[in-house]
Design a protein around this nucleic acid. Structure first.
Lengths: 160, 160
DNA sequence: TAAAAAGTGGGGATTTGTGGGAAAATATGG
DNA sequence: CCATATTTTCCCACAAATCCCCACTTTTTA
């Protein structure tokens, strides 16, 4: 699953966050009604490594959970690792208008109030507060070049 | 069984702890009434390896107990391990309002008073005091970089 | 420029969560 | 073994959060 896109969204009075149609269309409608109508989508949210939330489509999460479950949980380090993934985890389903409701602790963690930015990448979707997004995830050409060099550098086989 | 979620809960005056519906829905209603109504859930609690309690759905516990029983109990280390696993273990059933009642020694062990955090992972549920949870479950991603690489690693389809 | 699709905003039913009285069960002490 | 104190749990009533539903506004498409 290769999700793409940056989407500014607004939370309404009740704290509901609508997932843009452009994003939902990229997901396999893991849905109720056999027809396209009334379909709902399942996700798992999580505290991200940075000050943001991470939204996993359920199938993607299940893949991760399956790998984690193969770890021996009698080992301290493994346990801590598994726990780190479940830190702030919460299962979500879209409502009948393709909206999700995020728990207050999660919103607080990411510093999200009325607005947010969704950043879809690969199999997951990051949810940022606009402020954090511009300061942390912002595109700085110089920094980008540095990173590109560090991460990809020296490997002639990879081209951007 | 893949349980998901972090749930803040409050204990009432009588020390009862209600299991959130979102969590119970993930369990096979190991239940009394043939209909969904009046169903109750069976668990086993235990002292966790960390300063928390571990709640096992009965079927999961049974699986673990079966494995333990296959250990050679003529070996004193095995005997000690089996004993410590049962140390503080206690069977529980939800009451008619989906609440459980934890013994004082267990609450003391985990430092739980009025509030707790439930962390569901894989087949079990950890019960933490909020303080312990934030200090123990917090993690440094870099610390797990190698583990992440080993477990998830090499497989470019899976992302953290 | 009309029609369709996407997005927004509540009212209010329904579900979930909380609290406490009192019955039932269990323990304690003669 | 009975009487009393304590703990547990049932049951009901109330409070709060969630979600369905539908109407309305804005944007896109043809």
């Amino acid at each position: 699953m290769q999700l793409i896109g940056e989407y500014p969204v607004a939370l309404d009075e009740k704290g509901r966050l609508r997932l843009p149609t452009a994003l939902l269309r990229q997901l396999p409608a893991h849905a109720a009604g056999s027809n396209g109508e009334g379909a709902s989508y399942e996700f798992v949210v999580n505290r991200g490594f940075e000050k943001c939330l991470t939204l996993y489509p359920k199938p993607v999460w299940d893949g991760i959970a399956a790998k984690l479950s193969r770890l021996n949980s009698f080992n301290d380090r493994n346990r801590a690792f598994i726990r780190s993934f479940h830190y702030g985890a919460y299962p979500l389903t879209t409502d009948s208008a393709d909206r999700i409701l995020l728990q207050k602790p999660l919103l607080d963690y990411a510093g999200i109030a009325k607005e947010a930015v969704l950043l879809a990448m690969g199999g997951k979707i990051e949810i940022w507060s606009p402020e954090q997004y511009t300061s942390t995830a912002a595109f700085d050409p110089n920094e980008f070049a540095d990173l590109a060099n560090t991460v990809m550098g020296g490997d002639d086989e990879i081209e951007l």
